[in-house]
Structures are given as C-alpha cells and as structure tokens.
Computed example of a mutant assay.
Amino acid sequence: MSLYKLLSPKAFVELLQKETVRRVIPVDSTWYLPNLKRDGKKEYLEVERIPNAVYFDIDRIKDTNSPYPHMAPTIEQFNKGMSELGITKDDVLVVYDRIGTFSAPRCAWTLSMFGHNPVFLLNNFNLYKKAGYPLDTAKKTTYSGYETTSYKAHINLCSENVVSYETILDLVQKGNLKKKYNVYDARSLGRFEGREPEPRPNFPSGHISGTQPLPFTELLVESNALPESPEATKKKIEQVYKNLDDTFDPTKPTIVMCGTGVSACIVKTALEYAGITDVKLYDGSWTEWVLRSPPDLLANNRD
C-alpha cells in the first residue's frame, strides 16, 4: 500500500489556498539518466521551478557508503538532508520532477519510508505548466529558501519494503523467483531483452531470470503523467500485461526493479494506485545484480 497520494495540479493549487496552518512545500526531485547529459540540480537553479520549491537530490540523499547508485539512505543521512533543506515534520510535501513522472516517485517513496506524512506526488509538472499555474524563473544560488532545521525521523520502513540482493540471489538459484513472486522490471523492453545498451557505459543489458518486463513508459499517458484515476490505471496496466504477455498472480507478492531503483518506483506507484498491495522494491536493481551476481547467472540474463 502506497504511503503517499497522487495530486492533480488543480488539487495542488487548491491545497495551497486552503492550508493555512502547515507549510505546503513543493519538492523538485528532477534527475536524469547519465546518457541524457542533463543536470536536474542546475536546471532547478537556472531554468524554472514551482514557487517556494526546494531541491531534493536523490544523488546525495542516499546511502553514500554503498557502491550502488541510489540505495536508500540511513536515517542519519535522511535527517541531515531534510534538515539542510529546512523541512520540518509538520510540512506538507508535494513532490514533482520536470520530466513529468520519472524521479519524483523515487523521492516520494524515500520520504514515506522515513515516516514523513503527508507526502503527495504531483501528477504532474508538465500538466501544471500547461495549465498556466505560477512558475518561478528567477535564478537561484541555493537549493532551499528555508532556514536549516533539526529534522528528526524516528522510523525507517525500508527493511520491510525493500528486497535485498541476497534474497533475490537465493530465489534465482533455487528457481523460486517466478514461483513465489510477480517480478517486474521497469526498464525498456530493449534493455530487458538485451537488444539495447544500458545508459551506463560498458554495462551489459538483459534481465534476471524469472522477471517480466513492465516498461514504466507504457504506464504513462499524456505529458508523461500517470492515469488520472485508479480505474484508468488498472485498465492501462492490464492492457500492458496483455501486450507484453505478462502474467499477474494476485496470490503472490510483487517485486519491482529497474536500473538503479528509480523508475521502479513509477511502476510501484502505478500498481499500488490500481489497488495492488504488497509491492516491494529491489533497491539495488539491475546495476547491483550485474556487479554482484555469479558469472553463470549473468551469462543467462537473456532467457
């Protein structure tokens, strides 16, 4: 079950007008794949943002001790990052990214894992902009306009919402991954099938045995938004299942993955929005699998 909710641009603007007690803080979490050679942090400072937004850097507020790109931060790392942004536990956070729906679900997931409430996912910035709602285009020099706080999260839900490499490895080696879980990979079909390169140089494409492709782009609609209702989202997912010959067993829990744990959160959000419960994230995803799995398993990554 998702711990954050989708919010339309219209509902977001209404929330800004109605909320008179708590601060409503937009959270820009724009991040791009390395091959696109774009910088979300730089664009936040120099291009445009929703007024009063802070910038949540998923390349920084993470487990900096891990060799893998976007592993969930420790509670200490999370608290430090939130404090530096000037966020308090009473703030209403509305997360977005300038792509539309890409890195924002990862940020919303991270915020929720450490108990921040409420958290909303704006659906989405492109529609907000198209509707003519306010934008701040002044050049900035800092990633937050708020004074530093002493943010104190007291819970970390990652252990019960994240699947480890060791768990995936054991399931694959015993031939039980597909038997016990619905496992979906959010990367493109070409990357999943080993026909297209990964965005990281000299990195093999392919997939883990027992997983199924569920490219996140197939779940989005106009302006890279998620469908506007749970019913429409469920219908969209079912159509993608059919197109890809995917299966879904409602009696099994579900695991989502991708390249580094970012776009998997898009699929997780969509599945949960459609009413599917017990969806966990393989945080290390394809990057960790390639770097850690035994040669014989990696050689069979195109089954």
Score class of each variant (00 low, 15 high):
Gln77Leu: 00
Ala299Arg: 13
Gly284Leu: 09
Thr74Leu: 10
Val24Ile: 11
Glu218Asp: 09
Lys5Cys: 10
Gly115Lys: 05
Val221Ala: 11
Glu46Gly: 10
Phe216Gly: 12
His207Asp: 12
Gly100Thr: 05
Gln77Pro: 04
Gly100Phe: 08
Glu231Ser: 15
Tyr151Asn: 08
Ser229Gln: 13
Thr101Phe: 05
Gly261Ile: 06
Ala138Asn: 15
Pro69Asn: 12
Tyr128Arg: 14
Ile155Asn: 12
Tyr96Gly: 05
Gly206Pro: 04
Asn176Lys: 15
Asn182Val: 06
Glu228Val: 14
Ala299Ser: 15
Tyr241Trp: 13
Tyr55Leu: 14
Pro105Asn: 10
Asn52Trp: 03
Val24Asn: 12
Gly190Tyr: 01
Phe56Tyr: 01
Gln239Ser: 14
Pro230Asp: 08
Pro199Phe: 03
Pro215Gly: 01
Asp303Thr: 13
Glu198Ala: 01
Leu297Tyr: 02
Glu76Leu: 02
Ala11Lys: 13
Pro69Asp: 13
Leu226Phe: 09
Asn156Glu: 08
Val92Asn: 10
Gly132Arg: 15
Phe248His: 15
Ser293Met: 07
Leu171Pro: 12
Lys242Asp: 04
Leu36Ile: 03
Ile99Asp: 09
Ser83Arg: 05
Ser293Lys: 07
Leu122Glu: 00
Glu272Ser: 14
Met257Ala: 07
Ala153Gly: 11
Leu177Met: 03
Val24Glu: 03
Trp31Lys: 08
Pro67Ile: 06
Ile61Ala: 10
Asp136Cys: 04
Leu291Val: 12
Thr233Lys: 01
Val54Lys: 02
Ile99Pro: 03
Pro253Ile: 07
Leu219Met: 08
Pro9Thr: 09
Met257Gln: 08
Asn182Thr: 06
Lys236Ala: 09
Asp249Glu: 13
Leu244Arg: 02
Tyr165Cys: 07
Ser263Ala: 07
Glu76Cys: 04
Phe248Gly: 06
Val92Gln: 09
Glu288Lys: 12
Leu122Phe: 00
Pro73His: 06
Arg292Ile: 14
Arg187Gly: 11
Leu271Lys: 01
Pro197Ile: 04
Glu238Thr: 06
Asp90Thr: 08
Glu222Gly: 11
Gly175Met: 13
Leu127Gly: 07
Asn176Gly: 04
Cys107Glu: 04
Val262Ser: 13
Gly261Pro: 07
Ser159His: 00
Pro134Ser: 13
Pro253Phe: 02
Leu226Gly: 10
Lys139Phe: 03
Leu244Asp: 09
Arg195Gly: 12
Asn35Asp: 09
Pro204Met: 08
Thr167Arg: 15
Thr101Leu: 09
Leu219Phe: 05
Leu33Ile: 02
Asp57Met: 02
Met71Arg: 11
Asn202Phe: 02
Lys139Pro: 07
